[in-house]
């Protein structure tokens, strides 16, 4: 990881771990997202990501549709997940307050 590069550089979803950690309590880069456009399911870490400025744009490896957009302003995180129909987040079985079955597709 060394994400300083030319404009329009392609990174991958690993680089979204930091910005997503501001919003989510678990690491979303290991979650599986389903593309609204083509139905492909991908681990978020494997998305092709463009950025980092003015924001990160994550695209589907199957059809190149935009799945995730993150823009950080001084006082907010803008998160656009409109390209996803679901996000499957694995959780440790038996964690208090979180039934293990909630790890399934939304």
């Amino acid at each position: 990881m060394n994400n300083e590069s030319a404009a329009d550089a392609a990174f991958d979803g690993n680089v979204m771990a930091g910005p997503l950690s501001e919003v989510f309590a678990v690491d979303i880069t290991t979650a599986q997202g389903r593309c609204r456009g083509c139905g492909t399911t991908s681990v978020i870490a494997t998305l092709r990501v463009y950025g980092p400025d003015p924001g990160l744009v994550g695209r589907c490896p199957g059809c190149d549709d935009v799945l995730v957009r993150i823009v950080r302003t001084p006082d907010a995180v803008w998160l656009d997940l409109a390209g996803l129909t679901s996000l499957r987040v694995a959780v440790p079985a038996g964690v208090a307050g979180v039934p293990a079955s909630s790890g399934g597709d939304a």
Binding site: M1, N14, S21, T30, A45, T46
Partner: peptide, 27 residues
Amino acid sequence: GEVSTFLCDDLRRGDTVEVRGPLGGWF
């Protein structure tokens, strides 16, 4: 690269930056 050139050329012992992490559970 504004960040890498600063880190490589200008950051001196005793200088501070900010870090966030550790990050990423996939790779």
